[in-house]
Design a protein around this nucleic acid. Structure first.
Lengths: 159, 159
DNA sequence: CGATTATATTTCATTATCCGAAATAAATAG
DNA sequence: CTATTTATTTCGGATAATGAAATATAATCG
C-alpha cells in the first residue's frame, strides 16, 4: 500500500524547495554576490564575530572554501579579518558597515514574499502551517539517528 | 507588531531547507556524482527523452552548464546523446541502463527518511503536515506576481 | 623547560560550476 | 535562395568546493 498523503507531502515539499532555491538565487543576483558568498556573509553577520571554523561547520563547507569566500568578501570590503588576541591561531571575522548595509538593502525575498502572504492568512491557517512545518522539520532534521531503528517500526509504506 | 507565528514558521522552514540540502549532498556523495550532475540525471530520467534546452529551463541552468554536465554524464556512461531525426538541431538526452541503475541504487535519502518517519505518525498529523506544506508551497510558489500587489495589502508584519 | 600533540587557519593543486558571448548547424519564413 | 529563428556547443573566465600539505599557535606531559 502506498501512502498518498506521504506522496502528496513530498510533492509539496519539492515545490517549497524549488521556491526557496529560486528566492536565494534571485537575492544573490540582486546583491551582486553569489549565493555562497551571501550565505557566508550572513552567517558572519548573524554572529557578530566568528572564526572561519565555526562558519565552515555551520554551513557544512570545508575550511578551504570558507577561506576563499572570505577572501572575496574582504576584497569587496564587506567583511574584515582580525587575529584574536586571546588565541592567536584564531581569526575573527566580522561584517563591515558596508557588509551590513549590503545585507540590509537586499532583504531576503523569501522572507518578504512569505511575510506578506502569510500575514494575509487567517489565524487558524497560520497556526496549521506552523505546526505542519515544524513537524516536517522534526521529521527531516534528526540525522544522528541511524537507519536501523527506523526499520524496526514495522512495515513502512514505500514512496 | 511582529508576528511570532510567521517568525516561528520561517525558522522551521529554514530547518527544513537545511535538512533537505544535507540530504541532497549526502545522496550525491553516495553515488559519486555531484549534486548538479544528480539533478540533471534525474531530470533526464524523469522525462525519458529530453533536449538540453528543456533541462536547462527546468533547472534554471544555462545551456552551457547543462552541456558541460551532460558531457560528464555521458563520459560516465550514465546518459546518452542522440540527434533527433525530426529536427536535427535537437539532441535527445536519455538515461542509460547504468544511469537508471545508479539512480535506483542511490535512493533519495530525503525520501527514505521521510517515508519511514512519516508513516509512523498518526493519520491526523499526516494530514496536518500535508495541508501545512501545501499551503506553504502555495505561498512561496507564486512567482509571476510582481512585488507591488503585495505592498497594497496594507501593513505587513516585519519579520 | 622541551618535545609532542592538538587546534586553527591558510595555501596549493585540482575538479566542477556556472555563465555570457560567439560559433555552428538546422529549420523556417519570405 | 537568403534571412531569420531556434537549438546546441565551444570558448574564455570567474567562482566554488575539496583534500592534503603547510604554517602557526596553544596546551599537555614528562
Amino acid at each position: 500500500m502506498e501512502s498518498e498523503i506521504a506522496n502528496a507531502t513530498l510533492k509539496a515539499l519539492r515545490r517549497v524547495l524549488r521556491a526557496a532555491e529560486g528566492g536565494t538565487r534571485r537575492l544573490a543576483a540582486a546583491t551582486g554576490l553569489t549565493p555562497s558568498q551571501l550565505l557566508v556573509l550572513r552567517e558572519i553577520d548573524a554572529r557578530g564575530e566568528v572564526t572561519p571554523g565555526i562558519v565552515a561547520q555551520r554551513l557544512e563547507f570545508s575550511h578551504a572554501t570558507v577561506t576563499a569566500i572570505v577572501d572575496r568578501l574582504v576584497a569587496l570590503g564587506l567583511a574584515s579579518r582580525a587575529r584574536s588576541d586571546q588565541d592567536k591561531r584564531r581569526m575573527l571575522l566580522a561584517a563591515t558597515e558596508k557588509g551590513r548595509r549590503c545585507l540590509a538593502e537586499a532583504p531576503d525575498m523569501l522572507q518578504e514574499i512569505f511575510a506578506a502572504r502569510f500575514a494575509a492568512l487567517p489565524a487558524w491557517e497560520q497556526a496549521m502551517i506552523l505546526a505542519g512545518t515544524e513537524r516536517l522539520a522534526d521529521i527531516l532534521g534528526v540525522r544522528e539517528m541511524d537507519a536501523a531503528p527506523l526499520l524496526d517500526t514495522g512495515a513502512i509504506d514505500r514512496i
